[in-house]
Design a protein around this nucleic acid. Structure first.
Lengths: 162, 162
DNA sequence: TATTGTTATACTCTATAACTATA
DNA sequence: TATAGTTATAGAGTATAACAATA
């Protein structure tokens, strides 16, 4: 480890040292599960699609695109590949045949179940190395940050002032 | 917010609700700064390269590749684009002219400074909406998790057992 | 005409394989 | 020959623009 800038403490918040590095490590630990399945590993984007469809079965491509903040053609191609992999089913919606309903296949459901198990395993391996106090602090802090971050972002005013 | 499975509490750790969602939100909040600069926004990968070179000036392409866990050609192209953007300088190392030393240009340094300011702004906007207790818990918990996750991952044994 | 989804095209990131330059 | 870096090529993710099908 080299220097530790921690240029955050001059503001109201306490020092969050190297938040970028922390996030990177968390990302890596979380994504680690994705590559360790026996089935062909899906990309991060494909995995996100799977989770969304699992949570909202029958969702159409436009809505999925909004969930992903992705453009329509990207969504089409993502689903093309998941369909080719046998994880996803497309069926036109009877009431309005312009729309396409998306559902996971049995194979897709199985894949998600295995991934979830693997990720919990990875997460618990890490958390079990923390003290109970630290575990509790993590849950409390992340939950609060999650709430704070989820708010609609109060008018990002554009000025560098530097 | 939809349901909250919290299928984690059956183990030693307390419930970390929807860790994937939490990470996603954090990622989004953190990356949000990247797109709001007046200068042309760099990609996530390019930004990572900038941070690494800033921390290790004169680093060569092989070492950079190891830091990124990326293959050599990917690193070459990343640096091609950063150089074309004027953020990066390549110079052959005198002692061994096979190697290339990488350094940020003044323009590159300025870009990183602006990005850092923007990200702190975004982060503080979020953290200022948290109670002091929650802020403290977040720092404590994340630091501990960071330490735990950074450990060499004790033998991932491959068996789905599901 | 408006909406849903697709195809066409292009750029970035990623990788493997083959190549150049230097040692 | 071994190492550092590049070029060639390919696949995935992203985007905008143009198009087809449906309403």
């Amino acid at each position: 480890m080299r220097k530790a800038p921690t240029s955050l403490h001059q503001h109201a918040s306490p020092a969050l040292p190297e938040i970028g590095l922390v996030l990177e490590l968390l990302e890596i630990a979380w994504e680690r599960g994705r590559g360790t399945l026996n089935t062909a590993p899906l990309s991060t984007a494909q995995t996100r699609v799977m989770y969304i469809i699992e949570r909202e079965p029958g969702i159409n491509l436009s809505t999925l695109g909004r969930r992903l903040s992705a453009a329509a053609p990207s969504v089409t191609r993502l689903c093309d590949r998941l369909q080719a992999a046998g994880y996803l089913r497309r069926t036109p919606r009877p009431e309005d045949r312009r729309e396409t309903q998306l559902e996971l296949t049995d194979s897709g459901v199985a894949h998600l179940r295995k991934l979830r198990l693997r990720r919990e395993q990875v997460l618990h391996q890490a958390m079990n190395r923390m003290t109970p106090d630290a575990q509790h602090a993590l849950v409390t802090g992340l939950s609060a940050l999650c709430d704070a971050v989820a708010e609609p972002a109060p008018t990002i005013d554009r000025e560098e002032s530097a």
